[in-house]
Design a binder for these strands. Sequence first.
DNA 1: GTTAGGG
DNA 2: CCCTAAC
Length: 664
Amino acid sequence: MVLQKSLEYRFNGYQVPATARRARSTTRRAKFQRTVEDNQMCAFDLLASIAGKLLQEKRNPTIMTIDTSSEKDQSGSVKECQNANKLFKAELSDEGSCDNKCFSLLSSQTNNPNCYLSEFPDPEIDVYPGIASIVTSSNSLERVVADKLVDGKSQDEMENITSNAKLDSPGYAEDSCCKLDGDTSEVKDELHKFENVPIENPPALINLDGIAELSGYNDGIPCSSFSKGCGNVPVVSRDDDEKISGCSHPSSKTKSFRPIISIGDRVRKTLASKYSKVAQESKVDILSNSDGDFKPTCHSKKYCYKRQRSQMNIPLKKRKLFNCSSVSNSDGFIRSGGIYNSPESDMSHNTSCSSPGRMRKDRGIESLEAHQHSASRCGGSHVKLRIRSFRVPELFIEIPETATIGSLKRTVMDAVTAVLGGGLRVGVSLRGKKVRDDSKTLIQTGISLDSHLGSLGFTLEPKSSPSLLHLCAAHSSHVPSAEIPQSPIRPAIIHQRIQGSLDMLPDHQVTNLGNFVVNDYDSTPSPINTSVEKGRTDYKALDTVPEMGEDELAMVPVLQKSKRSEIMQRRIRRPFSVEEVETLVHAVEKLGTGRWRDVKIRAFDNAKHRTYVDLKDKWKTLVHTARISPQQRRGEPVPQQLLNRVLIAHAYWSQHHQETSNAL
DNA sequence: GTTAGGG
DNA sequence: CCCTAAC
């Protein structure tokens, strides 16, 4: 019914102090005031109006939409859109006709295309964080509203909500602990989708969660732009950096917004507070969906923690990849699992098309379930979709057959992380066919038809967009560059195909494990297998390379050169097996040192992951290993006999080289 | 593109 | 395994 875009107001990272509760420095205050003035917009006014409307709503038995999509007039000030309430009322009547069960986002975009906060003044915001910034956060309150209405507690609950919102606005800004009810509900939703994420690592959650929340970050910079789909209703949401004595949730630890460091940081904090909050409210069922659908509930904090810890243990560095990814997924649409309400306009705008080359029927489409609820009863105007999980796009991984299961896991994890870190976009398919025209409406596409929803699919696809690059670049000024994700797609190192879904939902994890098919094509350097391997390799070339869509390929060069040293993932370590060493020694004995390309071609042609530089390096270490005492050696022991041959060959060819050079 | 060598 | 200089 109502798109509740919660707004986060940040003022140079400081809250707006209603009183001198904490002795804020006068400097800070002055700075804040100044920046607000600089912005030619009184944030207080805006907030006050929001709060006012919420208060008004509190007296009103209906849910109120406050349109925050704002127009900037000539003077740069912000006005509220006029038609917000009308829209809302129209929606409300729809509501009544479908038993309060159909909720959908109400977007201002079609009706008021100019009402975007993207109109917000000046790029300066991007550079100078001291200016009051407004960031859309999520439609969390809407969920609350929807859920609560469904629960039949609409009015009472709404009062709470509005109260919370009220408390959240600066004018009442004394207690942030109370504000997050809406968010909490949403987060609870999210928890189900991400039970596998360590609670202490909220950034990982950002990936999908943040996507929806970060629609305001389209340009990679907070508050720079709200593009289409920016919703109507502001729920003043704010993270507080201090605990307040009167807090109704004394245990809540909401984190502060210090001066903006990075989006990821911000989100991390947001989520950290969210999830800690959720964990504390462990008793509450997460979902009371309007459709009565059952979803796992989180009654036990411990349980949730455990699940989260045990799965998806992504190293910090990797996890940070998610940040960029989340931001890049500015569609505001992807949401793994849980209910997603979207107006048609949103849908058509937000779903991106993929290149033809990527169109494959097996591309993770079926991992999604889409449902329509009550659409017909609502006059067919809204389609309700539930995306249970997303399948990670097809991955190609190369790993030697001698690798351990552990390293396989890590490799897969790396690949997944890399894909996510490289940015994702959503593809929409209907009946196995990609829907490419973003401008089509759901009705035109046929998505609104009940019978078709079962065949509606969403895919996560590697995303390549200038905004992503820009985005990462924007991050680079704040985040250590080593943590900046880069394109995960490197055709040169991608050989091995792993089929199977990596659903993000724990429910699916077990079953999907069985789907893994690992084809180890080129891990065996032995010349014996050459003929067989060759054929397979050819197949691979046919299979994998075209698999890379134009877009993915297109984005590679951009990232590769510029940031390679900093953001390119290091190749995984693949220790040489004794067999490989044997092969190498044999080849070097024959060809001599210094002809590594020949060695490669002759003995390791099928081991794509072994470059001639690798072979050269390995020889180097072999020589070193042979020279040190066995006690000092590490790793898989190389037979002494082999090492002796290494020494002999090395001595021989060293001598040989000397002779040839002397002869010249 | 290869090779050699330092890191 | 990465990086780079030198060829």
